[in-house]
């Protein structure tokens, strides 16, 4: 699995894992994010059970396992968190932050040791060492209980399935030409996102954030101008369509 440093600041760094060449062809490619502060590490959408081995190896290349104190699951899908049963045995003292709505469902992946920390509908803040993160509500985009992670210091928004694209596993990590990339995102957003009003509401809130990088769970990461281009494109896109 490829790992790329996204941000290195004074207090923490962001790393993305993805483009797993070892995964089965029929499994959708996913981006897993890791935030490393002085003493702690948080995994954002740690991925499906099939990726566990590669993820574990990737994490150990950057940090010690007992520093992995926190997991975050944006929602309940298997590509997000079906590896939970294995993390539960590997980092039993960790906490999992995930939507309150999905607790009874996510526990089906196997969770005897890790502590479930329910995120309320309105979102919340989380402090890791000296860095504060915000869980931003993104309900119905696509899951009915769904959050993104905003890092005001790094100005990174981990945007879950928003901004996702269905691509080949060797695709570049960053969006280079937005107009060309938009074609790869259209079907995903029209089919997976069910609500135009939820979309408008999210865009209005996100426009108020300072964002240098928007990091989705599938596909390429948006940097600088591409972030605003995406918001504009998404605003004009009608979603909740079956035949596009």
């Amino acid at each position: 699995m490829k790992s790329t440093d996204l941000y290195q600041g004074k207090h923490h760094k962001w790393i993305v894992f993805g483009r797993d060449q070892g995964k089965s062809e029929k499994i959708i490619d996913t981006n897993q994010y890791m935030i490393v502060t002085n003493q702690q590490t948080m995994l954002l959408d740690p991925g499906g059970i099939e990726l566990f081995s590669a993820m574990l190896a990737g994490i150990l290349s950057h940090t010690e396992l007992d520093k992995v104190t926190t997991l975050f699951a944006s929602h309940q899908d298997p590509d997000i968190i079906s590896s939970l049963g294995l993390w539960d045995k590997t980092i039993p003292k960790a906490k999992l932050y995930a939507p309150w709505l999905w607790e009874g469902f996510i526990r089906h992946f196997g969770m005897d040791n890790i502590e479930y920390k329910s995120i309320p509908d309105e979102g919340q803040e989380l402090r890791l060492d000296s860095v504060t993160f915000r869980f931003i509500p993104a309900h119905f985009l696509h899951s009915s209980g769904n959050f993104h992670v905003y890092d005001p210091e790094a100005k990174i928004l981990m945007s879950g399935d928003i901004g996702a694209a269905l691509e080949e596993p060797d695709a570049p990590m960053f969006v280079e030409d937005f107009a060309r990339h938009a074609d790869k995102m259209r079907y995903f957003h029209q089919r997976w996102m069910p609500s135009n009003s939820a979309k408008k509401n999210w865009i209005a809130r996100v426009r108020e954030l300072e964002i240098d990088m928007m990091a989705p769970q599938h596909g390429r990461i948006f940097k600088g101008e591409a972030v605003q281009e995406f918001l504009e494109w998404f605003d004009n896109l009608e979603v909740g369509i079956v035949n596009s």
Binding site: F52, A54, A57, G58, S61
Partner: peptide, 29 residues
């Protein structure tokens, strides 16, 4: 079943990166 799955995944992880922590986890698993 879960213990075996974990053992298999850790064995696979060791083939990717031969890390002492992975070895320790594997032996516990």
């Amino acid at each position: 079943l879960r213990a075996s799955q974990l053992e298999q995944h850790l064995a696979k992880s060791l083939t990717i990166l031969d890390h002492p922590e992975s070895k320790k986890l594997y032996s516990v698993a």
